[in-house]
Simulated assay, not measured.
Amino acid sequence: MASPLELAHSPCPNDTFAFHAWTAGLLPGAPPVDLTVADIDVTNGMAARGELDVLKISYAALPYVLDRYALLPCGGALGHGCGPLLLTRTACAPGDLAGRVVAIPTERSTAFLLFRLWAEQALPGREIRTVVMPFDRIMPAVRDGEVDAGLVIHEARFTFHTYGLHRLVDLGEAWEERTGLPIPLGAIVARRALGAERLAELATTVRASVRHAWADPEASREHVRSHAQELAPEVQKQHIELYVNEYTEELGSGGLAAVRSLLERAAEAGAVPALPPGALEPVPFAR
């Protein structure tokens, strides 16, 4: 029997839902897998060090790992109306952020790229200071006045009202208005050294896992809950419905255009390295 592949993804409901069928052995003929569940900043670091076979990473981290990893055409997180939010303790205007401190989860994240691109348009030439903070500390820090604003992702879209916070800007909405493209958040990458045939089989396995999750959502319910105990069941459901969508099943030309646009704009802003020609082409599905 072949050695299990090493897979790492986040504890977020979209990932635990989409990958459950594969990791639980519910897909006949799928390669065996050893799962690591870790926050996205951890998986970004794993990919940068080339540690595992298959990882969920931020699209912002993709330019740094394309020499070792290929983009899979499924399993990731893109969509409409699902972008990061910039939150404040009291209602204010974008210009009020000049000279202020904004808490961010990590500098190597799509959320931070979208924030930088928005700030260049909304606050040209104005300084905004940032401080990196664990994502679960950001909303309490804004509420308690430790920072002036906070950049939040995922389930915070559904829970920020409970902290009494105000949405200054929906950065995903700003991206969509500017580009007309979906919002690229998280990518699935696999080690290039696995070879073209195995990479194609992996892509087909991940797509099958997503389809199985949709066909039998009850199968993954306990697995999802066990990794998202801080979320109410209705929030878990909202999270999955928003982030597991057509682009999770297959990136497609629209999803790839969004990824390319984000990374090219970010490279022009000096936020990420420029992409080598052809490096972004995703793995094909097995025939």
Rank of each mutant, 00 (worst) to 15 (best):
A286K: 10
W22C: 01
S3H: 08
I57R: 00
V37W: 03
W118I: 06
I104K: 03
G164N: 00
D34E: 14
R157C: 09
L242I: 07
L123V: 11
A271T: 01
P32W: 15
G76R: 10
R260F: 15
I183R: 06
D53S: 02
I138A: 05
L123T: 07
P63E: 00
E234W: 10
E246D: 10
S226I: 08
G125H: 09
L7R: 04
L251R: 02
T23M: 00
P233T: 13
M46L: 15
V102T: 12
T130S: 10
E268T: 07
L52T: 07
P28Q: 04
I153F: 14
T90E: 15
H223T: 14
D136W: 13
T88P: 12
G254Q: 15
G254A: 11
Y247M: 04
E264G: 02
G76N: 03
A156Y: 13
L5A: 03
R129W: 15
T110H: 08
S58E: 06
P273M: 07
L242M: 11
P184I: 09
F115Q: 05
D96C: 04
N14Q: 10
G254E: 15
M139Y: 07
H20A: 05
K237T: 14
G145I: 12
V189W: 05
P32Q: 13
E120N: 11
T248D: 04
V102A: 15
G79H: 08
A208F: 14
P282T: 04
L263A: 01
E107D: 00
Y243P: 02
A286S: 13
G254L: 10
M133C: 05
A156D: 12
A213Y: 04
L185H: 11
A274G: 08
D39F: 15
L185W: 09
A93G: 04
G95E: 09
A203H: 07
E250Q: 10
L85C: 08
V152M: 08
P11S: 03
R143Q: 13
V224M: 07
E201A: 15
Q238H: 05
S253T: 15
L86C: 11
P84Y: 10
H154P: 00
A38I: 09
L35I: 08
T23G: 03
E146L: 15
T90M: 14
P94N: 12
F158Y: 09
Y69K: 02
G99Q: 11
L123N: 05
A61F: 11
V33P: 01
L87K: 05
E249L: 11
G29L: 00
F19N: 00
H239P: 00
I104N: 01
E155S: 14
N44I: 08
H80G: 14
S3I: 14
L199E: 13
D53G: 01
L26C: 02
A98D: 05
A61Y: 06
R265W: 09
A8F: 07
A219M: 06
I138G: 06
L66I: 06
F115G: 01
D41F: 04
A213L: 07
A156K: 00
F115I: 08
V206A: 05
T106E: 13
E177H: 06
D39R: 12
